[in-house]
Write a protein that binds this DNA or RNA. Structure first.
Length: 477
DNA sequence: ATAGGGTTAG
């Protein structure tokens, strides 16, 4: 046995014996992982360099950039004199790690300690206000930004507009901000369009869209998605065709909206067409695109294709699993529902309320009280999920079949206590009958027309690496 | 270092 080939010497990134502020700075500059950062940090402590505020600030900033908010907070607390940049970094990281309220607390602390925000601080803070649904905090910030002279910054104004549209659902205030802006960029226009679409002002949004001096993918996608959301998929596809003519390359967002439009139309033909478009143009089957396709195929009647897409997906998220589970359920494949559920658990994906609606419904289809009880207990005790009306409805169904009167009565009390008066169980049950395939088909024929994209000519030889690949798509005249 | 658009639901 050759010992030498097995022996790998321990690699130490710190070869120098001397480790001063200068060396630490260089190491931090070249640091490219959180683990390395921790090693450098421990060196800094061991060599007594913690008095160097610049080093500590850098440590804080870099750990933030890795999203390690707890670590960053510990470091931040050791700073005697954090600069505005570092405050900003901390506020942003609290936002991106899902604690927008803490971001606002930090902003408050920043002001109390006499630190002045700069033009970067406001966008972070406004985002935190939106995420926390704190419109009043946002208004105060608005006033502050004016007092401090940062009002004219486009970033500040765009975020302000977003606050009023999104958080306050306040069309007037949002539009006021937009009107008052002297300089607008694509984001300003798109924010206004998206804001108006939430508030239901689709026509006004379209007017602004047409006035836009230059539109990018996001602007087109926002408008397209608006039509899909407002139940006007045909208009969405018309816009999509115009977008291609304008040589704007669609992205995953655009396609997901359009596929949703196919689902709403119930058009398998158009859905396949969009899938084909995605494949031919080299789109990856990411969790959003894939999930939208699974849902489309399932609801348009082709469970086989839904399963195929699911099988091809490299990255799946919770919605992907839920959609597959629900799809099997709707099509009556209860054993598959449970199989997919077990696979999901094995893949370490934590199920949620929706997952168990699918799972318990499958138990009802199997008429298996035993399975139902098993999963109900798993849901409440192992996953700590509070049951919703749909879960109770399944359990009542199972207990009724088994003639377990005591259980039914117990559930009856729970349901009465936990649901609002306007929840009508009978209505829900009535609606659920629509999932029977015959009814679905009737509905589709009644309400949906097959929209044809045959005038859209796709060049199959186009490859995603060609930057101007859209140029190969023509609209036949 | 900052901003706008997306999928699932008995």
């Amino acid at each position: 046995m050759k010992v030498s080939s097995c022996y790998t010497p321990h690699v130490n990134i710190f070869q120098e014996t001397r480790f001063g502020s200068e060396e630490a700075r260089v190491f931090l500059q070249n640091c490219n992982s959180f683990n390395q950062l921790k090693q450098i940090h421990s060196r800094i402590i061991r060599f007594g360099l913690t008095h160097d505020q610049l080093l500590i600030r850098k440590l804080c900033q870099i750990s933030s950039s890795y999203g390690k908010i707890n670590y960053a907070t510990l470091v931040f607390d050791q700073l005697n004199d954090p600069d505005t940049f570092t405050w900003n970094v901390m506020i942003r990281t609290y936002n991106t790690t899902g604690s927008p309220k803490k971001a606002l607390f930090l902003f408050n602390e920043m002001l109390c300690n006499g630190f002045l925000p700069d033009k970067f601080t406001y966008p972070f803070v406004l985002n935190a206000c939106i995420a926390s649904d704190f419109i009043d905090f946002g208004r105060v910030t608005h006033g502050l930004s004016i007092k401090m002279g940062f009002w004219s910054d486009v970033y500040v104004q765009n975020n302000m507009m977003n606050l009023y549209f999104k958080c306050g659902k306040n069309v007037n205030d949002g539009c006021k901000v937009f009107d008052k802006m002297r300089v607008r960029n694509v984001v300003s226009w798109t924010t206004a369009i998206a804001g108006l679409i939430a508030c239901g002002k689709l026509d006004t949004a379209r007017e602004i869209f047409e006035k836009m001096p230059s539109k990018d993918v996001v602007s087109w996608s926002a408008m397209i998605d608006g039509y899909v959301k407002c139940d006007q998929p045909i208009k969405a596809f018309d816009l999509f065709k115009r977008m291609l003519v304008d040589n704007v390359r669609p992205n995953e967002f655009t396609l997901v909206s359009l596929i949703k439009g196919c689902t709403d139309l119930g058009s398998l033909k158009l859905g396949r067409r969009m899938h084909d478009f995605a494949l031919k143009n080299g789109f990856e089957l990411g969790p959003f695109l894939g999930t939208a396709l699974i849902d489309m195929y399932s609801k348009c009647g082709s469970l086989d294709d839904a399963v195929k897409v699911f099988g091809l997906m490299q990255v799946r998220n919770l919605a992907t699993w839920n959609t597959m589970i629900t799809s099997f359920g709707v099509h009556g494949y209860r054993n598959e529902v449970l199989a997919v559920f077990e696979e999901m658990v094995k893949a370490n994906v934590v199920p949620d309320v929706i997952t168990f609606v699918g799972v318990l419904s499958a138990c009802v289809q199997m008429k298996s009280l035993e399975e139902g009880q098993k999963y109900f207990t798993l849901m409440t005790e192992h996953y700590g999920i509070t049951p919703i009306l749909e879960h109770y409805t399944c359990m009542v169904d199972l207990y009724t079949r088994a003639n377990e009167l005591n259980e039914i009565c117990a559930f009856g009390d729970t349901i009465s206590a936990s649901t609002k008066a306007n929840h009508n169980v009978a209505e829900l049950l009535q609606e659920s009958k629509l999932t029977c395939v015959d009814e679905m088909e009737k509905l589709i024929h009644k309400h949906c027309r097959d929209y044809d994209l045959s005038d859209l000519v796709l060049d199959h030889s186009a490859t995603p690496t060609q930057p101007n690949f859209i140029g190969s798509i023509q609209i036949a005249s």
